[in-house]
């Protein structure tokens, strides 16, 4: 009796560490921990907490906890996730395209191909803008300007090696200029780079569409194109693809399970996430936050991660941020 009690206690303690996966009958009993590899308040954190709310409100998990592990564009959190959650079916990770780039440019020993993709969740378009009194009126004008003198074409956007930088490099390359010669001035966030755009210190700027939406609508910035493959309702600027450039880049976020999670455990997570994403609660969150739905199920997402990693690596190498 005593021994059983002790075993039970041990199981509780171990269960707390490793999760009590084997004991679960249905997905409604899931007790999950989502790691946001960023500080509280940021993009991945709000995605994690939104997922937490939606999963619990839609009844697809019993309890969900969010843990923040900030550091180095998410690579610190990813390394910890790969190391400590291995095979644990109760641990999830929220991450996005920035982490793909950060893993490469920080020469991190881990990357997103080592974890188990569950679903791609959201994907926000980037936008390319010029100041309102700029002589550049179209994406073709911008390409011509770049071609004429790549050095004096000053780009502003988010951190070096991030999605904004990658898009600027892709456009520079498409203009026929050497992407390693791009004059990209990195700022810490959409706010500071927006000030540089409004102050007329730059030729062109890149940011998430949502961050600069107000200025675009008021006419203080002229949007030339968005990087989303298809037109988006409510956004006037047309996709690069529709303007003859074969460029698409989406600031996506997805959810992952630990390495080595497979079989029933994996199926349970997949179905819980899928049901959540299709729930009214999740739709309401997307609307409130202004996120664009970019759902893709596990298998499609897995292939996507592979191709995205390759693509980002090529671009970062071409601008000298990776070797």
């Amino acid at each position: 009796m005593r021994k059983i009690f002790r075993l039970g206690l041990l199981a509780t303690i171990v269960g707390g560490t490793l999760g009590s996966g084997t004991l679960q009958a249905s997905s409604q009993d899931l007790e999950l921990t989502i790691m946001a590899p960023a500080g509280a308040g940021g993009g991945w954190d709000s995605a994690s907490r939104s997922m937490q709310d939606a999963m619990m409100a839609s009844g697809n998990a019993k309890s969900v906890q969010v843990v923040n592990v900030p550091g180095a564009g998410g690579t610190v959190g990813l390394a910890q996730f790969v190391g400590s959650a291995d095979g644990n079916p109760n641990q999830l990770l929220v991450a996005g395209i920035t982490l793909v780039g950060a893993s490469i440019s920080n020469q991190s020993p881990v990357d997103l191909t080592q974890v188990t993709p569950i679903a791609r969740l959201t994907g926000d378009p980037l936008v390319i803008v010029v100041p309102k009194d700029s002589p550049i009126r179209s994406i073709d004008d911008l390409l011509a300007t770049i071609k004429k003198d790549v050095a004096t074409t000053i780009w502003v956007g988010g951190s070096a090696g991030g999605a904004d930088h990658i898009l600027a490099a892709l456009v520079t390359k498409a203009a026929g200029a050497d992407p390693s010669k791009i004059n990209y001035v990195a700022y810490s966030g959409g706010g500071e780079s927006l000030a540089a755009m409004l102050g007329g210190q730059a030729t062109a700027g890149v940011s998430g569409y949502g961050e600069w939406e107000g200025q675009i609508k008021s006419g203080d910035l002229r949007a030339l194109a968005i990087s989303y493959p298809e037109p988006i309702e409510g956004i006037e600027a047309r996709p690069l693809k529709a303007q003859g450039l074969d460029i698409e880049l989406v600031n996506w976020r997805g959810i992952f399970a630990a390495p080595g999670v497979e079989g029933d455990d994996l199926d349970k997570l997949k179905s819980a996430v899928e049901k959540t994403v299709k729930s009214a609660e999740w739709k309401a969150i997307l609307k409130a936050r202004g996120w664009t739905d970019y759902y893709a199920p596990s298998d499609e997402f897995k292939a996507f991660i592979g191709s995205e990693t390759e693509r980002v690596k090529t671009i970062l190498t071409s601008i000298g941020l990776a070797n």
Partner: peptide, 12 residues
């Protein structure tokens, strides 16, 4: 505040 502090046996 739902801020996760490091967990050990006592916290669980």
């Amino acid at each position: 505040l739902t801020l996760a502090l490091p967990q050990g046996p006592i916290e669980r």
